[in-house]
Design a protein around this nucleic acid. Structure first.
Lengths: 213, 213, 213, 213
DNA sequence: AATGAATGAGCCTTCATTCAT
DNA sequence: TATGAATGAAGGCTCATTCAT
C-alpha cells in the first residue's frame, strides 16, 4: 500500500468515526504512519483529502449502481436492485458511507469551490439515475404514473435518511432492506405488474372488496 | 426580547447557516449584540446553547406532532397528519430544523453526556410516536400488517432524509409533502380504508381494471 | 455570623485548599452563600479579601506570640515558647496558616501596593520578635553569642519551611515541635543555662573543663 | 541554543520572576523569540514546561548533592557539605531554584498527575538523601542520637524555608550558609567528633566531665 | 518523495469587576 | 445592604498550513 493510499485509508476511518472537522490532520498522519507534511504534498489541503475520498466513493457507488440497474428487466426491478445495492454498499463500505453521509453534502465549512461543485455533481448524477429507473418503469408499465423527479428525490432522501440513522444514529436500527423494498414496491408498482408477490395480490383483493360493498 | 433569547436566536440562525462547529461564539455574541462572556453566563458551554436549542425544538416538535395525531380518526390519518405537520414545521422553522438535522444527532465532537442523552431520548420518543400511529392503524384496519418498529424507522428516516435534502442539499428540492403522503399511503393502507381520497380511488380503479382484464 | 464574616471564612477555606489565584470570587460567593457583588461591596478587590485575612492573622499571631514570650524567664525560654506556640497555632489554625504560608509573602501577582507593604511589615515585625528574644537571651546568658539578625532569620525560615512542608507538602510530616525545640536549644543555649536538660548539662561541664585546661 | 532550550530558559526566568500562573505562555514565546504555538509543539501543555524544568533541576540538584556527600569523611561532614552545596546551588541557579521553591510543590492548580508524582518523588529522594547522611553520621559517631527522619525533615524544611526567604521574601536576607552550618553542627554533633572546631571541643570535654561526676 | 519544526490566526472559556436595580 | 446580569480583556490550546532540509 502506497503512502498515499495509507493516508486515504486512515482519513476514511477517522472521518467516519469523528467527522471531518473534528479530525485533525495530525491524527490522520499518525494513523497512517507518515509525517504530517506528506499529507499536504499529496493533497493540497485537508479538504483535498475529502474531495478525493468523495470522488472515489461517488464514482464507485454510481458505476456499481448503474451496473445493477442495467441487468434488470423492468424499471421497478431496477429500483429494487438499486435499493438492495445501496444497503449492501452501506454494509460493505460502512466507513466510507459514513463519511459520505456525515460530511458529504454539507458540513464543510466555507465549502471550497471544488468541493461544492463535487457535491452538486454527485447529487445530480444520483438523482438522474433514479429518474432513469422511474421513467423506464413508467414506460414498461412496472411503475405507476408517479412524478419522476419528485419520486426520485423521495427515494434518495429515504435511502440516505435511513442509512444515516443506521450509521450515525443513537439508536439500534436493524437491516431494513426488505421492508424498504416492499414499502416502495407497494407505493410504486404499476398495473401490469405480473410478478405477483403478496403485495400486488393484496391490493387487488382490497379493491375487489370495495367494488362489491 | 431578553438577552438570553437574543443569544438563542442568533445561535439558531448561525448554526443553521454554518453549522455548529463552524460558528464561533464570538460570532453569536456579535450577532446577538451582547458581550461574549454573557453566553457563558447563561449557558455554561457552547454545547450548552445547542442543548438548549435542541431541547426546545424537540419538545415543541413532539408536543405539536402528538397534538395533530390525537385529532385523527384512524392510524393512517395520523400518519398523514404527522407527515403534513413535519413539512409544515420544516417550513415554519426551517432554521431551527436545519440545526436539528445538521447537528442534532451527530456532528458534535465528543458529544457531552448531556447532549448524547438528549439525542437518544429524542430519537426514542419520535420513533415511539410513529410506532403508536402504526399500531393504532393496524388495529383500526387503516394500515396493513406491516412490522411496526421497522416501518416507524423507515418513515422517520424518510422524513429526515428528505428534509435534509431540502434544507442542506446542493440541489433544488420542491415541496414533496403530498407525494410523500401518497407514497406512504399506497405503501401502508389496509383493506377497510373507507376514507376515499384520491389515492384510494386510484388504487381502486387500478384493481378494477385488473379484474376485468 | 455576618455576611462579611461568612465571606472571610469561605475565602480562608478556599484559599487554603486551592490557593489564592486558583480561587475565583464566584466560588467564594457560592461557598459563603452570598451574591458575588457583595464581595466587592465589602472588600474592594479580590486582593482586598487577602489583605484583610493576612492582617487579622498577622495581628493575632504576633500578639499571641508576644504574649507567650513575655511570660518567659529567659530569652531561651522565650524561643522555646515561641516555637511551641508556632506549631500550636499551626495546628489550631491550619487553614489560616496555609493561606499565610501559601500566598502571604509572594504569590500575589503584581502585588498591589497595600499587599506588599503588609507583607513587608509582617516580616519585619516577626523577625523583630525573634531578635528581641535572642538579644534577651544573650544578655541573660541563656543564649550563646550568636549573631542576632542572622539567627532570627534562620529560625523564622526554619519554622515557615517546616510548616510549609507539613501543610502543603506532598509527604507525610509528623509533629516536629519537640525535635525542633531540642535542635534549637542545642544550637543556641549559652553557658549559664541552669534549667537542666541533657543539653544544658553537657554544655555546662564543657566549660568547667575549659576552665581547668 | 536550540529553540527548545530558548523556551526553557525564557520560562525559567519568567516563572522565577512572576511565578508560574502569572506568566502567560505568550510572554514566554515573546521572550524566547518563537511563535507561541511552538511551545505546545515541544511541551504539550504549559504545565509540561514546568514538569520539564522541575525534572531537570531535581536531577541536577540531587546528583550534585549526592556527589558532594560521597566525598565526605563523616556523616556530619556530609551534612555540612550538603548545606554548603544547597546555598551555592541557590546562588548559582537562583532563578531555577526560585521556580522550584515558588511553584514546585504546590502552587500548581489541579496539579496534573505527572506533576504531583514528580513532586512527591522529588521530596522522597531529597529526604532520603538527608536520612542517609544522618544515619551515616550516627554510625560513625559524628552525629548524636537524633531521630533520623524527623531530623531530615527539619533540615530540609530549614533549608527551603531560608532559601524561600532569600529568594522570594520581602526583606533583605544575607548569606546564612555559615550560620546554618554552625547552628546545625552544634545541634547535631556527636561525642567522638575529633575534627576540632569550637563546638567539637566543647562537646568533647563535656563528656570527660560526665565521666567523673 | 518525505520529514517535522515552525507559524499564527482563531477558538472556547475564565474571571475580576462594574452597575442598574 | 444586597443582587446578579453584564462586561471585556486575557489565557491556554488547537490546527491547517508552510518551508527548509
Amino acid at each position: 500500500m502506497s503512502r498515499k493510499e495509507a493516508i486515504l485509508l486512515a482519513a476514511t476511518q477517522l472521518f467516519a468515526k469523528r467527522g471531518f472537522s473534528a479530525t485533525p490532520t495530525s491524527a490522520i498522519a499518525k494513523e497512517a504512519g507518515v509525517a504530517e507534511g506528506l499529507i499536504f504534498h499529496y493533497f493540497r489541503t485537508k479538504e483535498g483529502i475529502l474531495s478525493n475520498l468523495l470522488n472515489e466513493m461517488t464514482e464507485s457507488y454510481l458505476s456499481e449502481s448503474r451496473d445493477r440497474m442495467d441487468h434488470c428487466a423492468t424499471g421497478l426491478d431496477a429500483i429494487k436492485a438499486s435499493i438492495r445495492f445501496h444497503f449492501q454498499f452501506s454494509r460493505d463500505n460502512s466507513e466510507a458511507l459514513a463519511v459520505l453521509i456525515r460530511d458529504f453534502p454539507f458540513s464543510v465549512p466555507r465549502g471550497g469551490e471544488t468541493l461544492s461543485k463535487l457535491t452538486k455533481d454527485g447529487a445530480d448524477r444520483v438523482t438522474h439515475l433514479w429518474e432513469e429507473c422511474i421513467d423506464r418503469g413508467k414506460k414498461d408499465g412496472s411503475i405507476r404514473g408517479v412524478p419522476t423527479r419528485e419520486t426520485a428525490l423521495l427515494l434518495w432522501g429515504m435511502l440516505t435518511g435511513v442509512s444515516r440513522l443506521q450509521i450515525l444514529g443513537p439508536i439500534e436500527v436493524p437491516d431494513l432492506t426488505h421492508h424498504i423494498i416492499d414499502f416502495s414496491v407497494r407505493a410504486l408498482s404499476g398495473f401490469t405488474e405480473k410478478k405477483g408477490g403478496k403485495a400486488a395480490v393484496l391490493s387487488f383483493s382490497a379493491n375487489a372488496l370495495l367494488v362489491f360493498s
